[in-house]
Design a protein around this nucleic acid. Structure first.
Lengths: 165, 165
DNA sequence: CACTCTATTTATAAAAT
DNA sequence: TATTTTATAAATAGAGT
């Protein structure tokens, strides 16, 4: 009767894989919840699998949306770079919590502003779509006009822009 | 000498909180890695904290970007809805793994196509920015032209579009 | 299969350094 | 305050139903 330590490798057997998946997914979600609660921090997890038709998430779909929105506003370089000053990390944490970045970090601020600008313009575009002349051969106009044309009943509600410095 | 079971509540003491954070973050990342490896699935975790200036992620920044891109292409309704047919979930999993959705789910497919269209056009725009007449008072053109204007040295490398049906 | 059961492994709280 | 140690709680692999 040996409940051995498992080798960290893909489980080919499907029923074994599913059994392990169910147990470990539950354990993982519990751990994320505990870490977040104990330390009062924001965290999220997304798990795709053939055993759940939709991604399993913690804390919730909207919670994940909120957290990944923050993540995406960080320039790639800042995502990788480590700052050393505690004051900086604390300030960034406060900004994150408020969801309202100040201009302490120039690049984050600019991107946030840029995003707001684009979304405002998308909104304007939604209200004045009929005013756009289809005769325009402008590349930029074509790019945005593509959306409502492709999706008859769809509405563009948000655009996230990824910027490389 | 009691290493007791801990109550699941916010740890006010900062040094205790930080000690717990470091240990549990490490444990959590290990668990995500194990789940992903053992079951051959896509998963990611993002953790914000005052102790790390940038979000701690698994598997990597680019890996997280890839996974949350998929998550965001799911309409909100599909994110919540549970399908019951195994065939559907298996098909969706295969699509996810290949990163090349087929048209089994009309809406996911349309969104993916739309995204590719926009990004291709953004790419074109990057190559032909100087061809855009600044005399245009077209709202759509203005929306896209805003980006390079705000960020002198920045380049728009990707746009994610959120669509409401 | 989808559960429950438990021997083990693993994570970790608190102590020690 | 960070790291290491170790007693204990928690997770889970494989067995049983």
């Amino acid at each position: 009767m040996t409940r051995k330590k498992v080798k960290l490798a893909f489980i080919a057997n499907d029923s074994s894989s599913k059994a392990t998946y169910k147990k470990r997914k539950k354990g993982l979600m519990k751990k994320v919840n505990e870490l977040s609660t104990l330390c009062g921090i924001n965290a999220c997890a997304i798990i795709y699998s053939p055993y759940d038709s939709n991604p399993e998430v913690w804390p919730s779909n909207s919670g994940v949306q909120r957290i990944i929105s923050e993540f995406r506003t960080l320039p790639e370089m800042d995502q990788n770079k480590k700052m050393t000053k505690d004051s900086q990390s604390l300030r960034q944490f406060e900004e994150t919590k408020e969801g309202q970045p100040r201009d302490g970090d120039d690049r984050s601020y600019l991107i946030d502003q840029c995003l707001k600008d684009v979304n405002r313009r998308i909104e304007i575009l939604g209200n004045s779509r009929m005013e756009l002349g289809e005769s325009s051969n402008n590349v930029a106009a074509e790019a945005i006009q593509t959306l409502p044309i492709i999706h008859g009943s769809a509405r563009v509600s948000r655009v996230d822009v990824h910027i490389t410095f």
